[in-house]
Design a binder for these strands. Structure first.
Lengths: 339, 339
DNA sequence: TTGAAAGCGCTAACAC
DNA sequence: GTGTTAGCGCTTTCAA
């Protein structure tokens, strides 16, 4: 089946609407933007002509003339792990009333890619930028700092922001989780996570975690890393590997809820007493956990709230830098209580 | 903690680079775009000056002058259900070599929102548009048809495309699944899905499904709908409700894999014989299924491939409309074999 | 309330 | 190989 491509005739301009309505381009522009005073009859004529023609304004020309762009760049590492979509929801929600529009760029945790995404976005002269993390290449930081627009780094606050920051302390989150685990009586603790050299937040959680263990005179008894593939499946496999290699282990700390969920399903299937024989905990507080046979202990990463606050900062464009620290809540669930 | 916002001094233009390097604006422009012949020394001078100043080109001005925009609009209903992120992956992957950049807009399955997202995107004069589904408001269709750029409607091919289309027949997918279920010996079949008046694809699958049932002299013995919340949890709850209300049911067809997974976990926890006493099937072929204790029957929706093909069409901008039908594969897993 | 002129920062087209 | 000129389609500013 084929039919001709839409005909490439002349794209409509203000001039076309002006001619069709018998009103000057300037007045047409005013009507279309709801600016200034335009008499009701003129307004009606213009609107009718624009509608009839199917006129769509050219924002490129508009932006160049007005030096104003209603776009907000959002740079995130990934869309596929269910944490950033929720951040996006918070951002969209908050931007919705303001006339600003988010534009998403994905870096796949690659610093080079991040740099080019930032460059590309800045070249469209957005009104603000929201970027995941505090770690960026020197060039990226320089571009952002020079851009003359509000920059909000999100998710993390353990570091030096370029301008504004909204997030949680992952270092402290790791520490807190370790303290809860130790308090519950577990002593032979293993870590299971992604092998992601550029996931600085996961790394900081692990650092905080080990720091708190050390303070209690403990160290990890084992650890296991993965990359790629179905997180749920990897969670199962890694859990099997650790239990096999280190049978005395009594707690498994996962770097995210998906692999934690895989581990939980595995333990339940094996008939392992959770949380009696082995305790489990993840990170993120994803909605999926609500549907599991048992509630995995986790820590809410405040994703929605981070998105909202970041968008608010962009919308307000405050004169001074803000750093908003949010505080994740430990959700003990049913997998961290030592009987 | 506060510090001054980046200083809002004059944004750099080609002119600044021109002055700093002692080369005309035009030649600077040529160097920065790798266009035409520029001598090596001139080129080096320009690059050095641009780098030293931290110049970022203004694409708004560039696009206006060249009448060329390297953006591709992608309009999708949602980012949170793990089907569209994979489509996006296919799109990005394919666009990566071409100099084109995807820009995402999310509609939340709301036709009004879709209309405004389309309008907003077209006003940036993108090189092409990729849109989920074949059902759009008359105004949306008109705008797209008039835009004079390649339009690719994705996911579905049961209907009249505006220009190009890439997708599967959901009607047929539903039919095929019903046939497989009937062939396996199940007779008392229930449907569980989202209450989404605007999820036309889920609706078409159900129609095809019921059509095939009717052809075999069967009808659904029960059905259950939900909206919002954790899909995994909803899957559990709906499954419990149906089993309770209609104990004779012997097959549960879910409109997506997440609620199917919830149902599967529920049945296994209840000690129900799956697939002997009750069979189960979902839709989408999400990666998550790999990590479940048993493999849920499903149908791969060809998400990655759809993204790739759609991007290819945009990149090639063929003169005639193309409709690419993809064929989903039934993945019987371990929940559809009647013993 | 409406219109005319100038120009946003860049690139196409043409000269040299 | 490099420079000059003239816009791209809109909005700002100012005048009427």
């Amino acid at each position: 089946m084929t039919k001709p491509t839409p005909d490439p005739r002349h794209t409509l301009t203000l001039r076309d609407v002006s001619e069709a309505s018998g009103v000057s381009e300037m007045t047409v522009s005013r009507v279309l933007r709801n600016r200034g005073d335009v008499s009701a009859p003129t307004r009606a004529k213009v609107l009718e002509a624009a509608r009839a023609l199917g006129y769509v304004p050219n924002k490129i020309a508009g932006a160049l003339a007005s030096q104003r762009v209603n776009l907000v760049g959002v740079v995130i590492p990934s869309l596929s792990n269910m944490v950033f979509p929720e951040v996006m929801t918070g951002i969209s929600e908050t931007l919705d009333g303001t006339g600003l529009q988010p534009v998403v760029g994905v870096t796949n945790y690659l610093p080079d890619r991040e740099e080019s995404v930032i460059y590309e976005m800045l070249s469209w002269r957005p009104s603000g930028m929201i970027i995941a993390g505090l770690e960026h290449s020197a060039a990226s930081r320089a571009m952002l700092a020079r851009a003359g627009i509000p920059i909000v780094e999100i998710m993390d606050i353990d570091g030096e922001p370029i301008n504004h920051a909204v997030g949680i302390s992952h270092r402290r989150a790791g520490r807190q989780m370790a303290e809860a685990i130790i308090a519950a009586g577990y002593r032979k603790i293993a870590f299971l996570g992604t092998r992601m050299p550029n996931d600085f937040r996961a790394k900081k959680r692990l650092e905080g975690f080990e720091e708190a263990l050390a303070k209690a005179g403990l160290a990890l008894v084992d650890s296991e890393f993965y990359s790629g593939g179905s997180a749920l499946l990897k969670g199962r496999e890694m859990t099997a590997a650790v239990l096999d290699r280190t049978p005395e282990v009594d707690f498994l700390y996962y770097s995210n809820d998906m692999i934690g969920a895989g581990g939980l399903l595995y333990c339940l299937a094996q008939g392992i007493d959770v949380p009696g024989r082995i305790g489990l905990a993840g990170f993120n507080g994803v909605e999926l956990l609500d549907g599991l046979p048992r509630k995995l202990a986790t820590m809410d990463a405040c994703r929605l709230e981070i998105g909202r606050k970041a968008a608010q900062i962009i919308a307000q464009a405050p004169a001074t830098s803000q750093v908003e620290e949010l505080f994740p809540t430990l959700q003990p669930g049913d997998t961290i209580r030592r009987s």
